[in-house]
């Protein structure tokens, strides 16, 4: 070339010299090791809070978790009692929310996977993703404006509706994922037999994807069971046991924890820990069971 740089290619150069590590190589290798070490530490640090949290909830909650907590309603001014009103409340509010949210979420997922065009599906999916990101307390305000204000009455149903709104996009996205795993050949076989599209969707696609749908629903339930913010101005909370009075205020476990954590009495704080342990056990159990099973299938 024009620079006329002399060539090395004739004489050739044994690679031995080139393969010897230089100081720069050692520095780079050191940086690399440091990076790997720091990354490992970071990963460990991310798990530490989980461990600390579970440990303390178990430690502080185990003492409070007794028959009273499970069976007695709250008594005034920290005189003991239990979380029965809250437990029964959660057992009503959450399932009702699930019953409302499940069909909507599943149908919406069927629509995007089976019926709609790509663009509509993308739009709806996008809306669902964005909705997952809306702070749940705002959903609470929305439910308050819609279901409490007109009746001048805090009520359990409004709480269920608020939770349902939170659950719908979660159910939809998880359902979608499991429906997409249903092989197209199944659909075609059914359609070829003359089964109409809607029946194919329901009886073939949905049934095949059912376990995935159920898993998604369980995760949504676990999430809703721990939601507090949307219940504050809807279900409101109630010291008394309320069974079936959906038009009336009702307690729930997360509300119970929130309220009792803020009281100056140790007995109430301790009840909050007990309720937290109860809630944590439920949420972790659902997650471990569902994700442990589905994770193997879905994780990349």
């Amino acid at each position: 070339m024009s620079q006329g740089i002399p060539s090395s290619l004739v004489a050739g150069r044994p690679a031995a010299a080139l393969l010897v590590r230089t100081r720069a190589d050692r520095r780079r290798s050191l940086v690399n090791s440091a990076f790997q070490g720091v990354a490992l530490l970071a990963a460990v640090a991310c798990v530490v809070p989980l461990g600390a949290l579970v440990t303390f909830v178990v430690m502080n909650g185990a003492g409070a978790l007794n028959l009273d907590l499970l069976t007695r309603p709250t008594r005034a001014l920290g005189l003991g009692g239990g979380a029965a009103a809250a437990i029964l409340g959660s057992l009503q509010i959450v399932p009702i929310a699930a019953v409302i949210a499940a069909p909507i979420g599943v149908l919406a997922a069927l629509y995007t996977v089976e019926f709609s065009g790509r663009r509509t599906a993308t739009l709806i999916r996008f809306a669902a993703d964005v909705m997952v990101g809306i702070p749940s307390i705002l959903i609470g305000i929305f439910a308050f404006a819609l279901f409490v204000l007109p009746f001048h009455q805090f009520n359990a149903l409004a709480g269920s509706l608020a939770l349902a709104i939170i659950m719908v996009p979660v159910v939809m996205r998880t359902t979608e994922e499991s429906l997409r795993l249903v092989p197209g050949s199944l659909r075609e076989a059914s359609l070829a037999l003359g089964v109409p599209m809607w029946r194919t969707a329901l009886s073939v696609v949905l049934r095949t994807g059912l376990s995935g749908v159920a898993a998604g629903l369980m995760l949504a339930v676990a999430r809703a069971a721990g939601e507090t913010a949307p219940l504050i101005f809807t279900a409101f909370g109630n010291q008394l046991i309320n069974v079936g009075g959906l038009g009336k205020p009702m307690d729930a476990l997360p509300l119970f924890i929130f309220v009792n954590a803020r009281q100056p009495y140790e007995a109430q704080n301790s009840q909050a820990w007990g309720a937290a342990l109860l809630l944590l056990l439920f949420v972790l159990a659902v997650n471990v069971i569902v994700r442990g099973r589905a994770g193997r299938r879905n994780s990349r």
Partner: peptide, 16 residues
Amino acid sequence: LVELLAAIPSVVVGLW
């Protein structure tokens, strides 16, 4: 485990 951390209810994290 990291994803499990996301599943813990906010109110429980608050209590802790």
